[in-house]
Nucleic acid binder design. Structure first.
Lengths: 336, 336
DNA sequence: TCTCGTCTTTGAAACGATTCATGGTCTCTC
DNA sequence: GAGAGACCATGAATCGTTTCAAAGACGAGA
C-alpha cells in the first residue's frame, strides 16, 4: 500500500541511498538523476515516512509546549510566538493543553518524551521540578514559560509577577481605594501566588489599606462570574472598593456579574484591574485596566533558548524576566 | 545514551520480545517476569521510543487538526471537543493553525501526511478538495469541520451557515432595521460566503430592505475595528442601521470602534449581530447578540467520525449538519 | 514411560529512512 | 600512457520496536 523510498529507487533506476541523497543533499547527486528521482516521486505520490526518519536520527524535529489553558488568549499568544520562531528553524510545535490539571500535564510530558522531542516548553502547574530535571538529565532541554525557575537548574522566560501585582494594587490605592479584594485562581499556581505577594506589598506600604483574598477554583470567565456573584450578594458596606483579578478571564467574568445586576457600578463602586491584557480587555462592558505581558515575545524567546540548549547541552540555564506594564482603562478610573 | 528495550531486557535477564510483551500484552507473561521487567524499566528510566513503534505499526496514534485561527475561541472550543473525544480513544491531537493562510494550511497537511497520522480534521481555507481527496485515496481519512463537503466525497461536520445568516438578518429586520451591512471576512472562506447568502435571502424577503457588503481581510478583532472606523467616518445618514458580522471577533472589533467614539450608539443607531457566540460575546461593551454554534460538539463528532473511518475505510462519507441558534442580547435591541 | 497440550519465552525478521565506507568513471596533468 | 583527484552511485548496516513461528518446560492422562 504505502510507497517507500525503495519503490522510488526502483522506478528511477537508482539505489535507495541515492534517493535519500536527492532528498537530503541534492548537491551530491548529478542533475540528471535528481530530476529522474523527482519524476519518480511525483509519479508514485511518494511521501516521506517521518517515523523512520526520526528513528534513524534519534530525535524528532518537533518541540512540545504545554500550556495551562489553551482557551486563554494569553497562552495562545505565547503559542503563536513560539510557532513563529519554530517555523524559522524548520521545527514544529506540538501543543498540549493541561487545562490546569496535573494529570494532563503529566500525560503530555510522557507523550513528548516518547516522541523524543527536541525539547519542551512548559508553563508548569504543580511542583514538577523533579520531573523536569529528570527530563533534562536525560537530554531533553526544558524551558519554563511564564514562570521563573527558582533554583536556576532550568532556563525560564517569565514576567515579574510580584512587580505586576504590586503595580496593579498600587495603582488602585493611588486612585483612593482602600479595601482591596484579590480575586484569585488556585494559589497552587505560582503565578497567582506571586501576584498576591506583590499585591500585599503594595497594601502594606499604604496605611489604612487592607486586602482580602477570594480564591477561585480556576482562572476562567465562569469562575470569575461565580466570585462576582458572591461579591454582589454581600451587603454594600461589606464589598471591597477595588478588585485585582489574577487574570483577565477572571476579571471579565467578574465584570459580567457586577455590571449585569446593575447594582454595582464600575469603576464608581468598585475599580477593577486584571492581568495579561488580552485583546478582549479593551472590548469589555467597561474597558478593563490590566497588566500587560509581552506574551508573544515570551513564546519566541523561550523557543529560541530551547533550541540553543538543544544545540549545545552544556549551556548554563538562563533566566529571562520581562517587566510587565500597567495599561489603564475605564475600569480603574478614580473614585467618583 | 538513550535506553532501549534491549537494555531493559538485559537488565531483567529476559529477551527483547518478552519486554515488548510485558508492555503490550502483559497477560501472556508470567507475573514474576512482569514485575522483574517493570523493576528494570524503573531502574533504568526507560521510555518507549514512539518513532520505532510507529514505524513498525505503519501509522501513528495521532490525528491532525488544522484550524483557521487558533486564537478564535470558536476554534479552540472545537479543538477542545476533539481532544476530549480523542483522549477517550487513546489518541493524541496535533493542532495546526493555518492562520487563514493557504500555504500554512498546506504545510500542516504535508507534515501530518509525513507523520502518517490516523486521519485529518480540517477546517479548509481555499479550494483544497483535490488535495484532500488524494489524501483520502492514499488511505488517510479526512473529515471537514465547520464546512460541508459539497460533493459528498468526504465526510463533514458543519453548521448550516446559510440558515444562520438568514436567521441573523431576519432578526435585525424584524427589529425594524432596513439598511443592513454585512461586515465580512474574505469571501473566499466558504463559511463567510454562505452566511452572506443567507443574509441576502432574508433581505430579499423583506420589501424595502437593502444590504451592503464590507469585506475585511481577516476574521479578526483588529480587522473589525478597522471596518468599524470606516463606518464611523461616514456621514450619519450614510451609515447602516444594522450590521451582521461574519463572526464575533469582527463584531467585537466593530463594537470597540463604534462605541469608543461615542458618536454611534448601539443598538439605538446601529444594531449588531455576530456569529459563533464565543464566551466573550456576553461580556462586551454592549452584550453581543450572536448565532450560536455547538462548537465543542462539532469537534467531538468530527473526531468520532474520523476514527470510525480510520477503522473501516469502506465507510461511506457522512455529512452532519447542525442547526445554529440565535442568542439575543442587547446589541440588537429594538429601534429606539 | 510416552504423548499431548498448555503456558512461557525466545530470537530473528520487518518496518523505512539515513549514513558511510567502498568502488567505479572520468578528467586532468605530467 | 599512467597516476592522481574529483565526482557519483552503491548497498549494507543501523536506529528501536513489534510480531510470530518455533522451541522449551511442565503436568496430566494413558
Amino acid at each position: 500500500m504505502a510507497i517507500s523510498i525503495r519503490d522510488v529507487a526502483e522506478r528511477a533506476g537508482v539505489s535507495v541511498g541515492t534517493v535519500s541523497n536527492v532528498l537530503n543533499r541534492p548537491d551530491r547527486v548529478s542533475e540528471a538523476v535528481v530530476s529522474r528521482v523527482h519524476d519518480a516521486i511525483r509519479e508514485l505520490g511518494y511521501v516521506r515516512n517521518d517515523a523512520a526518519r526520526q528513528l534513524r536520527a534519534g530525535r524528532s524535529s518537533s518541540v512540545g509546549l504545554v500550556v495551562l489553558d489553551a482557551r486563554n488568549p494569553f497562552f495562545t499568544d505565547i503559542a503563536r510566538g513560539a510557532e513563529d520562531e519554530a517555523a524559522e528553524h524548520g521545527v514544529a510545535v506540538l501543543l498540549g493543553d493541561s487545562d490546569e490539571k496535573p494529570e494532563r500535564e503529566g500525560a503530555y510530558l510522557d507523550l513528548f518524551e516518547e516522541q523524543r522531542v527536541r525539547g519542551v516548553l512548559v508553563s508548569p502547574l504543580g511542583d514538577i521540578r523533579e520531573r523536569l530535571e529528570r527530563l533534562r538529565a536525560h537530554g531533553t532541554p526544558v524551558v519554563l514559560v511564564d514562570r521563573i525557575a527558582e533554583d536556576a537548574t532550568l532556563s525560564s522566560v517569565s514576567v515579574d509577577d510580584v512587580a505586576g501585582g504590586r503595580t496593579a494594587v498600587a495603582h488602585l490605592l493611588a486612585g483612593g481605594r482602600r479595601r482591596v479584594a484579590f480575586v484569585s485562581g488556585p494559589q497552587t499556581i505560582r503565578q497567582v501566588a506571586d501576584r498576591l505577594v506583590g499585591a500585599r506589598e503594595a497594601v502594606a506600604a499604604t496605611p489604612g489599606a487592607s486586602i482580602e483574598v477570594l480564591e477561585g477554583a480556576a482562572l476562567s470567565v465562569l469562575e470569575g462570574r461565580r466570585l462576582g456573584e458572591e461579591l454582589v450578594a454581600r451587603p454594600a458596606a461589606e464589598r471591597p472598593d477595588a478588585v485585582f483579578a489574577a487574570n483577565d478571564l477572571l476579571a471579565v467574568g467578574l465584570l459580567q456579574a457586577l455590571v449585569m445586576r446593575g447594582e454595582v457600578r464600575v469603576p464608581d463602586d468598585v475599580a477593577i484591574v486584571g492581568f495579561d491584557d488580552i485583546d478582549f480587555a479593551s472590548a469589555t462592558v467597561v474597558p478593563l485596566s490590566s497588566i500587560r505581558q509581552p506574551s508573544r515575545l515570551i513564546g519566541q524567546t523561550a523557543l529560541r533558548i530551547l533550541l540553543e540548549e538543544a544545540e549545545d547541552p552544556e549551556l548554563a540555564p538562563r533566566q529571562v524576566v520581562f517587566q510587565p506594564e500597567l495599561v489603564v482603562r475605564e475600569s480603574s478610573g478614580p473614585l467618583g
